[in-house]
Design a protein around this nucleic acid. Structure first.
Ligand SMILES: [Zn+2]
Ligand SMILES: [Zn+2]
Ligand SMILES: [Zn+2]
Ligand SMILES: [Zn+2]
Lengths: 128, 128
DNA sequence: CCTGCATGTGAGAACCATTGTCAACAGGAG
DNA sequence: CTCCTGTTGACAATGGTTCTCACATGCAGG
């Protein structure tokens, strides 16, 4: 029996106003700053629950930190700016097929894949 | 001035006998078990140095742990078995081009990408 | 409306991979 | 062989994440 609490609602709401990927720590800080404070453990539990439900996508930093973002529900990948975090969802049917074909060639089953593209966006280049 | 030490040699040698990706902690344990013990900090420094030199590839676990493997030096991606860790290097020129094109379309520069495929190999399926 | 209670919360401790510290050590150039 | 400098490793510190558990609170069912 899953309950609707002020905390879970608040965490979900944070991602309404956010472009790009953000960590649980950042969400916690934003909530605290907005006066709508939520415990850190609860923020971790909430983002993980949202990610499990497919409400949030998650990726990992080079340093291993988990970042979350509200995305569309279809399968897609991300083009992420290293500077500002701005994120574009991209679809690549050809890539999906290629991955499945490669796996099949080597007799692998239950295939999944991760694919992210990183770069510097035009705005960040202009900003120097 | 980079020196050749027993420790660095030992760490590099561990990857000669290893298929698949392995963590610094695992390398440390293997060295200790083989009697050729090396300090944990030193193992971390060694694998990172090897990765910087392009001698090792690294990926990150779902839990954020860093894993290393000796790979060929050309650009490639990995098809990894979730069960046994067996890894196949795969090349996908079409994917490289697609990633660059997508990034260019959105005016992103300095583009890089990560792409890994996960599955279960035939041997692991047979083993149940 | 109440009440009961299973579920959710949060302050703080625990975890654990990784990194920093620094005194002792040991390649290797000269 | 010597000396200098890069290297090592026991240990402490970090930092993100998870666990603990006493307390609070949604939310059926009455
Ligand atoms: Zn997404
Ligand atoms: Zn940017
Ligand atoms: Zn590789
Ligand atoms: Zn396998």
């Amino acid at each position: 029996m899953v309950r609707t609490t002020r905390q879970r609602t608040a965490v979900a709401a944070v991602f309404d106003d956010l472009e790009g990927f953000h960590s649980a720590q950042e969400v916690h800080a934003k909530l605290r700053a907005s006066g709508d404070s939520v415990g850190l453990s609860t923020v971790y539990r909430a983002v993980q629950a949202l990610a499990d439900d497919g409400e949030l996508d998650s990726i990992r930093t080079d340093s291993g930190e988990a970042l979350y973002r509200r995305c569309s529900t279809q399968h897609h990948h991300h083009l992420v700016c290293r500077g500002c975090g701005r994120t574009v969802e991209v679809a690549g049917p050809a890539v999906e097929n290629w991955a499945d074909r490669v796996a099949a060639e080597h007799c692998f089953a239950d295939v999944s894949h991760t694919l992210e593209i990183f770069g510097t966006c035009a705005a960040c280049r202009a900003a120097g």
